[in-house]
Nucleic acid binder design. Sequence first.
DNA 1: TGTATCGGATACGTTGATGCATCGGATACA
DNA 2: TGTATCCGATGCATCAACGTATCCGATACA
Lengths: 215, 215
Amino acid sequence: MTTEPAISARSPRRERTRERLLDAAFEVFADQGVQGASIEAVCEAAGFTRGAFYSNFESKEELFLALMDREMRTHLADLERSVAAIDPAALDTPDGFRAALRSVVSGVGPDVPGERQWCVMKLEFELLAMRDPDVAARYTAGQQRQRAELIVVLTRVLDGLGLRFTVDVRTAVDLLLGAYEAGLRAALLGAPGDQHPEALIEVLVDVLTAAAPPR
Amino acid sequence: MTTEPAISARSPRRERTRERLLDAAFEVFADQGVQGASIEAVCEAAGFTRGAFYSNFESKEELFLALMDREMRTHLADLERSVAAIDPAALDTPDGFRAALRSVVSGVGPDVPGERQWCVMKLEFELLAMRDPDVAARYTAGQQRQRAELIVVLTRVLDGLGLRFTVDVRTAVDLLLGAYEAGLRAALLGAPGDQHPEALIEVLVDVLTAAAPPR
DNA sequence: TGTATCGGATACGTTGATGCATCGGATACA
DNA sequence: TGTATCCGATGCATCAACGTATCCGATACA
């Protein structure tokens, strides 16, 4: 999209500083917000000065876009990895089935340490997307890839078990993702009550498979 | 919470400028982001200079908190109003029931013009809450009030119809709110597919009332 | 070992937001 | 109509972030 120096033409050293700047950007953006963070702060966190930054990126916006693309690629890969790691044998028990489903829906399961940052950055992405059509297009494209992957996987898994959701699979995925995100956010904000992602997901799975024909 | 000049001790004139500043803050914050917006920009939008601002608020943060409190109060009032406006007669038909439920869940139904700003500001609130425990406490408190109201209302309505959700009412409310928000955000971001709030809500209602005992 | 190129550091001028100290006009009350 | 008070406007000094132009050291290659 933006003019990238023919990606192959980037020296290894250059590539490493880029990565370090992106890593730092993730931390600093999550901590202070994309708008609130200064380029200087990102550079400092990465152990560089602004000279290095302007040598690698044109602006904070370009840095942000590069970061978002990288994160979405990473999480799609994580999803595919955790899908590949599903143990078909464990699916027979309801608990195993729910666990697999949860780990798949969360994209990467309870990697609890980074959960907060991940959630915050997702909110930042959505917020920026609300204001910039270009960001919105990239963001929704990534979300759609994730959604498509989940649809395929769930269809396959349920077929294998001889089950069916009581609603269209695509709708089921949307509901599952919505419930998971809402629950996660509420939990991270310290909300009381029972709106925690695991609980919501389990209830939802029960409801969505309730009237399904037995194997 | 913060030192407010004994609310009664605010002259009507002063009160009006405060309101105008809050109105402007809503617009500007939604447009440029809380962090991205300058105090100057808010003042300009309100038709004042910074002198007026510093005479009424101590900082941008205090303005933000005042705005968040006001918005949450307003939306709770809207919710109670739309609850009061439910026509019991229309609840008999499935469509009427769903319509009532949707308008109640959305807090104020399809007031479509301001929907985008409302959604953006909610994201801003959540994001700021993620970073500041004080903001988080106020935000979740407001959310819990809304949730409690919905729980009461839905229980009452369903009882009147001789229906029951197939899951705990509190869980049902969480699922409905989650689905609505997720759908709304996706729709506003221009996502393709069927993840639109109305559709999700209707499916969810069907699922949640499917196995309910008939009247 | 000499040299050219690349990558990051340094230094500088510019801009825009901030907070305050002070001023001026309008409103209320005698 | 005169006067006091309140409230918002104006002017100013400060500061942080920005972007660029230039410099220096390291690596690659002859």
